[in-house]
């Protein structure tokens, strides 16, 4: 495989539009997830965040525009080759068979079938479960897990999917609200895990609801509004109260932090009630 030109690297959306029924869910979105980068996608409900992720992953075919991986259109890639290089954690996690947790994580190795020994597969499954702190769940029936346990187990499946290497080209991980069902400790641990992956060269895109979390975790933040990309850049530049208040349609304030970190963004819920 030839190394892609520097300007072609990454998982890139060019002029991406998606129509579902009569509604334009995405309109003319340009976005490039670079190897080793952490990109947070934020936006109000219905802004098209999940649709963007599902189009970037190849699950939905764009109405206009194209998605490419290191310069090659997604459609030109063999599905298994694509699966070895990009994993997806969807928002809705379902399972129609009572598979054991370790068997669910082992499904992540499906695109590598025939390339790993049984021992290497077991090791990869164990490492992935440890990475999300779920090794104690390995023998459980995966259909009996709580929401948070399920989210971590499926993240482990994604980690297993990207773990075998080395192979030419960078790897990409797409996470749709990976912390929505997690308590505070597990939120921090999952995002730390995603950070470690990005430091090892994987490009990580995460749809996040918590703006402070996005500011603290991401290298760049993309703000989606009504299917359009309203802003894209460093958290400090993008997450300014005026833009956010305009996009979310409510007053969002920022509060400086004593430790000099990025200012906290305060939702209207937290404001003291008017006297």
């Amino acid at each position: 495989m030839t190394t892609p030109e520097p300007q072609e690297r990454g998982l890139a959306a060019a002029g991406l539009s998606l129509r579902r029924g009569a509604r334009m869910v995405l309109e003319d979105v340009d976005l490039r997830l670079l190897p080793g980068e952490r990109l947070a996608v934020v936006g109000p409900n219905g802004a098209g965040k999940s649709s963007l992720l599902r189009t970037l992953s190849g699950e939905l075919r764009p109405t206009a525009g194209a998605v490419s991986l290191d310069g090659r259109p997604l459609g030109a890639l063999d599905p298994r080759e694509l699966a070895r290089r990009r994993a997806v954690l969807p928002q809705d996690l379902e399972l129609s068979l009572p598979l054991r947790v370790d068997a669910v994580v082992a499904l992540g190795l499906l695109p590598h079938a025939g390339r790993l020994s049984a021992a290497a597969e077991r090791a990869a499954v164990g490492a992935a479960l440890r990475a999300v702190g779920a090794e104690a769940l390995a023998g459980r029936d995966a259909t009996t897990l709580s929401g948070g346990e399920r989210q971590r187990v499926h993240l482990a499946r994604c980690l297993a999917q990207l773990s075998p290497g080395p192979e030419a080209g960078a790897r990409y991980l797409l996470l749709d609200e990976p912390t929505s069902a997690l308590d505070l400790r597990h939120q921090a641990e999952v995002l730390a895990q995603a950070r470690a992956l990005s430091r090892a060269g994987t490009g990580v895109l995460a749809v996040l609801h918590d703006l402070n979390m996005a500011a603290a975790w991401a290298d760049r933040v993309a703000v989606l509004d009504g299917g359009r990309l309203r802003a894209l850049g460093a958290p400090a530049a993008v997450l300014c109260p005026s833009l956010l208040s305009c996009v979310w349609g409510c007053a969002i304030e920022s509060l400086p932090r004593a430790d000099g970190g990025p200012p906290l963004l305060i939702s209207p819920v937290l404001r003291a009630p008017a006297a």
Binding site: P79, L99, L107, L110
Partner: peptide, 12 residues
């Protein structure tokens, strides 16, 4: 068993 979308993400 994961659903059709996730199965496709695994190269199926």
């Amino acid at each position: 068993a994961l659903g059709e979308g996730p199965a496709a993400h695994l190269g199926v």
